[in-house]
């Protein structure tokens, strides 16, 4: 190698007055119509902003008022819900919400991952289109329909499975069910109905479509060159998926799963139809009796006076804060995984 280092040559004399040049100032010239258009759409934006902030502020102010009555710490740690005697908190319902959402995620995430890989990597041609449409259709099914299916079809059929788990894995505290004698020959399935597990299963089916569509979209973006490269190096399809599709779709997997989590936290009617509400901190997910913030609001609103209403709003506001954090994180992850994948044509 020679020792000459390449050098950037700067012309000794700049072009005449080049250093003094300033960028042109660009001026928009709007006609009267354009001004009217901008004013009207701006008004629309303001109205929407005001409405949305009003909803948030109303919930927050009422909620904070109720929380101040008992104090934040007591609000977070009390399991009971009796606003009339100033003894209420979201410990039990919050835990129930998280448990139902966790069951839903554990079931939905592998299903969604498998389905989206099936759609993008295995199925081809018309099957791909039909599958995509069907997943979108599943997303459009109203929650009351899912709730009816869960309460009247899934529940009677799944309780035997619940019982089987509790008989064989009951030594794990999570799957323990009290008050059941496994040696009894009678088919006693009542203690297994209306549980966190069954509610979680129904919610899982409701969040599969949103997770699947986000994951499918991110898997489609995996670059063709890398896919063909993997195949050319002798990879099997799974080898290609593991080394190309999954790493490229990581953002979509995480983001889609979290978006599903946001849905699961806020789901109401399906849970309301299935569970029998209890206000205690419990970890036995197969046992009868569960609760969630959303279901509690649907159950308690009608018997509430003004203060009890504020208490419910405090619970609702804390749920809203949770789903908002989850959703923002999810969309940030999805947006980050997308950046640079597209360019404007």
């Amino acid at each position: 190698m020679s020792t000459i280092t390449p050098e950037t040559l700067i012309p000794e004399r700049p072009e005449a007055e080049a250093d003094l040049a300033k960028p042109r100032t660009l001026r928009n010239s709007y006609t009267g119509r354009d001004h009217a258009f901008r004013a009207i759409t701006f008004t629309g934006g303001i109205i929407v902003l005001v409405v949305m902030l009003l909803v948030g502020a109303f919930l927050a102010s009422n909620g904070v008022q109720a929380i101040n009555e008992v104090g934040l710490w007591k609000f977070l740690t009390t399991a009971n819900w009796a606003p009339e005697s100033n003894d209420f908190g979201i410990a039990a319902v919050l835990l129930g919400t998280v448990q139902i959402a966790a069951v839903a995620l554990l079931v939905a995430m592998p299903l969604a991952l498998g389905t989206s890989l099936f759609i993008t990597e295995v199925a081809g041609g018309w099957l791909k289109k039909v599958l995509t449409s069907m997943v979108d259709l599943l997303a459009a099914v109203p929650s009351v329909v899912f709730g009816l299916w869960g309460a009247y079809m899934l529940q009677p059929n799944i309780v035997d499975f619940s019982k089987w788990i509790s008989v064989w894995f009951g030594w794990i505290p999570l799957f323990q069910v009290d008050g059941v004698d496994p040696a009894s020959p009678l088919r006693d399935t009542v203690p297994f109905t209306a549980s966190t597990f069954i509610a979680g299963l129904v919610v899982a089916m409701m969040i599969v479509p949103i997770q699947t569509s986000i994951m499918t979209e991110s898997f489609r973006r995996a670059p063709v060159g890398e896919r063909e490269g993997a195949f050319a190096l002798g990879a099997t399809r799974w080898g290609m998926i593991r080394t190309v599709v999954l790493p490229f779709g990581k953002g979509g997997i995480i983001g889609g799963t979290m978006l599903g989590l946001g849905r699961a936290l806020g789901e109401t009617i399906a849970i309301y139809l299935i569970i029998s509400p209890v206000f205690e901190i419990k970890f036995h997910i197969l046992e009868k009796g569960a609760n969630s913030i959303a279901a509690m609001i649907a159950l308690k609103y009608s018997e509430s006076n003004e203060f009890a209403m504020s208490a419910l709003m405090a619970a609702g506001f804390s749920l809203f804060l949770m789903t908002m954090v989850v959703n923002f994180t999810a969309s940030a992850i999805i947006a980050k995984s997308r950046s640079g994948a597209d360019s404007e044509g």
Partner: peptide, 15 residues
Amino acid sequence: VEAMTALPSVVAGLF
């Protein structure tokens, strides 16, 4: 608007 898409449906009813 993005934040409000996270509003749980029952909370909208409660509001």
